[in-house]
């Protein structure tokens, strides 16, 4: 199974985690994060979203962040799935799942990977609101989240 998938199709958390665990008897903890499309953002109702990415660079950026997570944390396996294309409120957008021997490293690596992805992976969201379609603004809070890990994001 690849570590990284960029796809228009939805994903199944249970199936993804089962595949990630495989027959690795050393796994004692699995942490996963699923991001979903909210029905409101910045004060407006959101009726739909389009996710654009930079094919090639996206996969490279996420593989690089997984390599960094493997260096920093005692983890066993990582899976990242990110959807692109048209999405609706309630849809799943992103999955990060990490296996490790114990929970602490799995929790930390999962959060590190999401903090990294938010500011370093080339995705862009355009949401549809009653006022029209608009590109979503990057948040300084996301740069701050990566700074906690000692990495300067420089995104927002």
């Amino acid at each position: 199974m690849p570590q990284v998938s960029i796809q228009t199709a939805d994903f199944d958390l249970t199936a993804e985690v089962a595949a990630l665990r495989g027959d690795d008897g050393g796994v004692g903890a699995i942490a996963s994060f699923v991001g979903t499309v909210r029905n409101r953002n910045d004060g407006s109702a959101v009726s739909g979203m389009e996710l654009e990415h930079y094919p090639g660079m996206t996969e490279r950026a996420i593989e690089a962040m997984i390599d960094e997570a493997q260096r920093r944390f005692d983890i066993r396996a990582v899976r990242v799935v990110h959807r692109v294309g048209p999405l609706q409120p309630g849809d799943q957008i992103v999955l990060v799942a990490v296996t490790s021997a114990h929970r602490g490293q799995a929790f930390q690596a999962c959060e590190f990977l999401m903090d990294y992805l938010k500011t370093q992976a080339p995705f862009w969201k355009k949401e549809t609101t009653p006022e029209g379609a608009r590109w979503v603004d990057a948040r300084v809070a996301d740069d701050d989240a990566l700074a906690r890990w000692g990495i300067t994001a420089g995104n927002a």
């Binding site: 938010k118 500011t119 590109w135 995104n155």
Partner: peptide, 10 residues
């Protein structure tokens, strides 16, 4: 070379 706005994935 690519130019783009700040990224907003996840």
């Amino acid at each position: 070379v690519a130019f783009f706005p700040p990224v907003t994935g996840g």
